[in-house]
Design a protein around this nucleic acid. Structure first.
Lengths: 148, 148
DNA sequence: TGCAAATATATGTACATACATTTAATGTCG
DNA sequence: CGACATTAAATGTATGTACATATATTTGCA
């Protein structure tokens, strides 16, 4: 559906204004779909993102600082997201021996198992399936250019 | 900066995966910039969006339902956003005379004044300034296609 | 008419975001 | 060495998101 109809705004003042709204709206649309799928597995999107970062590090530990560096949203609260994951036994938290200010965070076996289940489901419905490879590249270039 | 560097992820499994992350990351980047600018005026992004919808209706009132229809995020809680705006005297809330279930919400003079101040500032630094008009159109087409 | 269904909004709860502040450990430099 | 700044993480507070439920009003129809 065209963005004009989705938010019932008949016209935009210009194509830039429309593009801006379109990015925000599309990101929300994607997030909502993701959140719905993840809900069946009992985790939220931020929790899922943190788990994937931890899997990338595995078997090395990550610190809260490293999580913040790699999270999509830099200002969110990694500490409290890890709290929730720890409660679900998907990660462990131990004081870092070489720097007792820092905390070593590791994904557990249960966490790895959960991620691989989710991967299987996500692989069945590929993302951005409506775009060709060339279009997806074009999109990446445009988005990178916006943030320059 | 390229998305790989921004989130310190050296490679993506494919261009679709990268595109997905890029949309989410870019939307966050835009939101954060907007939020920072709006903070000087004492309002948040959702509050700003609601105010703009109300200005679009002015001098007619809007209901909570109309706000939900037009908000970027359909599931957010319009009622409580209006609460905050009402506290700041930027909107008024009165029971709708023709349907006492509904509530007429109107932007106040103070609200209109605030919006026009913000417009002035935003106009000075146009959005998506790094894109040409053709590129912005292309972006809109790609984003619309993703949601088909 | 009367009563159930639908509608409009508000409220409750859990989680996340945004940002300031606090606490503890480590580094640094006089 | 010791005071002070820096760093890593946790905590506090306000706001927003997501979703279920509650309350009040209106509508429809037996």
């Amino acid at each position: 559906m065209k963005i004009e109809d989705e938010i019932k705004q008949p016209v935009f003042s210009n194509v830039f204004q429309k593009g801006l709204i379109n990015i925000l709206y599309t990101a929300g649309w994607i997030s909502q779909r993701n959140a719905l799928q993840l809900k069946e597995y009992g985790i939220t999107s931020p929790q899922f993102n943190v788990l994937r970062i931890l899997r990338g590090q595995h078997p090395k530990p990550a610190t809260v600082n490293l999580l913040i560096e790699r999270m999509l949203d830099k200002t969110s609260n990694a500490s409290r997201i890890v709290d929730k994951l720890e409660l679900k036994k998907l990660v462990t938290r131990t004081v870092c021996p070489s720097n007792r200010r820092a905390v070593d965070i590791r994904i557990t076996e249960a966490g790895l198992t959960l991620l691989s289940e989710i991967d299987t489901v996500f692989a069945q419905e590929p993302q951005l399936r409506n775009l060709t490879e060339a279009e997806a590249s074009q999109l990446n270039d445009l988005l990178d250019k916006i943030r320059d």
